[in-house]
């Protein structure tokens, strides 16, 4: 018979020591969508920036003798109806898409922050500003952009302005929402008791605490703006046809898409992959910046 003082079996280790991992490895494991989206986006940005050195030819050069070539070693993505190299045009066209996406995201964020912070912090202006935003949001973004471009003329700058006008009310609403939730926090009351005035409270106490959702929303606006830009170019109401852009290339290939589908295929793939990359990045950032999630960047 066993003695009662027999040693107890060792308890299983509830929390086995985690193997040490590098920062990069941890980021990949915890937030794969940030890594995948970010890398794809960086790759596309690099392609657009260094288009001159990536085996491209002049994207504007018309060569009637070489029109409608299939993709080959000479013309990686084929040529269009005017004999222009589609590979070169897609790479250069990326500049327009990315520039429009980033500019709209930046401008919409700035405008949305200003209007949203004022609406959230000063209750008297809240109703007025939000009804204005409701009005802007009730117009379909593409329609608003077409109207603006028709009124002020088609250029990349006007396209950016038009899409910004359509997109910033959404940012404004989000900013107002998070401001309203942050201003209920006791540390705002503490700052008021400490003698801080409203502008100081907004800049010091509210703004730093709402950056997470705003960065995430900015990425979504960026991808929406790229799609809208392409749609505008596709219907011929956006970036002037003289500048290559993904939507414009697709528009030019529209007539022949049943017999020469590659003209539309390559810019469409680039646009889709870019939008996917930005959305993946935004999703990953949303999870990483959410204060409720246990692991943070």
């Amino acid at each position: 018979m066993d003695t009662p003082t027999q040693a107890l079996p060792p308890l299983p280790d509830l929390f086995p020591p985690q193997p040490r991992r590098g920062k990069v490895r941890r980021l990949i494991v915890q937030h794969p969508s940030i890594v995948i989206g970010g890398s794809l986006l960086v790759l596309i940005i690099l392609l657009a920036i260094f288009a001159n050195w990536l085996g491209t030819v002049d994207p504007y050069k018309i060569a009637p003798a070489k029109r409608n070539r299939l993709p080959s070693m000479d013309f990686w993505f084929g040529t269009d109806t005017l004999g222009r190299d589609i590979y070169s045009r897609v790479l250069y066209g990326g500049r327009v898409s990315l520039f429009v996406g980033v500019s709209v995201a930046f401008l919409a964020t700035v405008l949305g922050l200003v209007t949203g912070l004022i609406a959230g912090a000063y209750r008297r202006l809240d109703a007025i500003i939000m009804r204005l935003m409701d009005g802007l949001m009730s117009i379909p973004p593409i329609l608003l952009a077409i109207a603006l471009v028709a009124a002020i003329g088609g250029s990349v700058l006007n396209v950016i302005l038009a899409i910004t006008m359509a997109e910033f009310p959404r940012m404004s609403r989000i900013v107002r929402g998070v401001v309203l939730s942050v201003r209920e926090q006791p540390f705002i009351d503490g700052a008021i008791a400490a003698g801080s005035t409203m502008p100081k409270i907004i800049i010091r106490h509210i703004l730093p605490n709402i950056m997470g959702p705003i960065i995430v929303q900015a990425t979504y606006i960026c991808s929406a703006a790229m799609i809208t830009e392409a749609a505008l170019s596709f219907i011929g109401a956006g970036t002037p046809p003289s500048i290559p852009s993904w939507g414009g290339i697709m528009n030019e290939g529209r007539m022949l898409w049943q017999i020469k589908p590659y003209i539309i295929l390559f810019p469409a793939v680039f646009l889709s992959v870019t939008v996917l990359a930005v959305n993946l990045l935004g999703d990953g950032l949303r999870d990483a910046l959410d204060p409720r999630s246990a692991t943070r960047l």
């Binding site: 926090q185 009351d189 008791a193």
Partner: peptide, 28 residues
Amino acid sequence: RARVQVVFQDPYSSLNPRIRVRDTLSEP
């Protein structure tokens, strides 16, 4: 306000998480 101050119940939400203790204390 300089003469009448307040301490709140919840020590987690009554301090701005984004600023250093020095800045919280020097704000008044």
